[in-house]
Nucleic acid binder design. Structure first.
Lengths: 249, 249
DNA sequence: GGGTGCGCTGAGAGCGGGCTCAGAAGTTGC
DNA sequence: GCAACTTCTGAGCCCGCTCTCAGCGCACCC
């Protein structure tokens, strides 16, 4: 996996207010999942460490003083709530993103999002995890946006990630959840060719068994809504993937 | 380190008159509850500390000199009223919000609130606790409102939090307590998508075991009263949650 | 210029999220 | 003690979303 990654031109990156990379701690007892996650976060240009249980998580946190923690609720030793308390003791303004099984949502998530923290249910897509973390960090005010705020812009296409609002040339564009996620990925990587495999990896959840064919399908949906009669911004690079770039005048 | 969490767009924040964050001490012997509470208060941008019993509460108070204290009446060592006296000795103008069981309300609480303090009965919703604290601080004159007073406005929708009065386009809208609380949360977060879990966490009491289904139900109630024939302000974002925004022109 | 395969799109099935209605249980006020 | 109101549960329905399948067009290669 490619670990060195200069941000592409136009790639909006978050850094800490002093300009150093954002520090994230990933806590999950499944090493494979932790690896995939930390890969995606490093791809954002962030500094990442991992821990496999609650005790080492707190130990790592004491050392790293992370800005954010990605925390599996089900850990071999302790439950998420206890870890949360310890983390807040280490650094009171830490942001926490919980990972939880879908059916476990109801019972004990209660109160977790109250402190401004957030959660995603397994299985999740990497794009979603990254987006949630970005949102948390931005709201906590510990991050500095290198570009202009929560509104993402490519050409005359804009996306407000918090309001989930997309406009093209001032007109509102209505998107389904998956379409939105796909467009978000494209808009975070303007002028960069993304392969179908990359897109599948980031937009669809990691346990998705389907074909790369869905990517073509959703690109076609997006074109109908985003390009619709206007000069095209979504381009196919045959044999390589897709690019989003401002429409040539 | 940046400990203040700037409110989202349109989110009215309170600070002390010198502009520094409001300082709150949370006293409860249930660590989970204390954690949830302090999370919610930190989310308001306030500085929070916790204590688990009366003795450490007074010790913390001497150190922090809090503007307000959230105080469980039932403590392992002392009762709330003794703590109250000690707190007033530390800082005579401190605001106190009592937490009490429903059936214990009658007798002595009444006398307390005469002193300008307030109470909520368990189980409570976080939105309620935060609202009561805001009211206390404002009345005590130790807080400075960063935005425009107690009246909340989104489009042609207004809410007077103190009078519990809501108008849409000048017309009075009558709401039940829960409906009011839900709308308050939405109006504090205009143009931001709130998930059902977030709403559940803040509007319903922390021990509510029910389904996210009630949120849909109450959204539908609100729509009937707030949107009723007018251009809709409450929007569903499928798979994500709900947003309140000014009606499109 | 013809073949090959990649990419595009239309049709449609299945599913599940979200809305509404009806009613039970609890609460408040007269 | 009754009436009005509020809150929440359950059931059923509808429709939007997702994905599969299949057929076709077009780009590229020889």
């Amino acid at each position: 996996m490619n670990t060195s990654r200069p941000r592409g031109p136009g790639r909006p990156a978050l850094t800490r207010t002093d300009g150093t990379p954002i520090r994230v701690l990933v806590v999950d007892d499944d090493p494979d999942l932790a690896e995939v996650l930390s890969g995606a976060l490093r791809y954002e240009g962030w500094e990442v460490r991992t821990a496999g249980d609650g005790v080492s998580a707190v130990a790592e946190a004491r050392d790293l003083l992370p800005d954010a923690v990605v925390l599996d609720v089900m850990l071999p030793d302790t439950d998420g709530f206890t870890v949360l308390r310890s983390l807040h003791a280490v650094r009171s303004d830490v942001c926490v993103l919980f990972l939880t099984a879908r059916d476990a949502v109801e019972d004990r998530i209660a109160g977790i999002t109250a402190g401004g923290d957030d959660y995603v249910t397994k299985p999740f897509s990497l794009e979603e995890v990254v987006a949630r973390l970005r949102g948390l960090l931005r709201r906590a005010g510990m991050a500095r946006q290198l570009e202009d705020g929560p509104r993402l812009t490519v050409g005359d296409l804009t996306m407000d990630e918090e309001a989930r609002e997309v406009t093209r040339g001032g007109e509102l564009v209505e998107l389904s959840p998956t379409e939105f996620e796909l467009l978000r990925l494209l808009m975070h990587n303007p002028r960069r060719v993304l392969s179908k495999a990359q897109i599948l990896d980031r937009v669809w959840s990691y346990d998705f068994g389907g074909q790369a064919h869905v990517v073509e399908l959703y690109i076609s949906y997006l074109r109908k809504k985003v390009d619709a009669g206007r000069p095209p911004m979504i381009h196919t690079v045959r044999g390589a993937g897709y690019v989003l770039k401002p429409a040539a005048r």
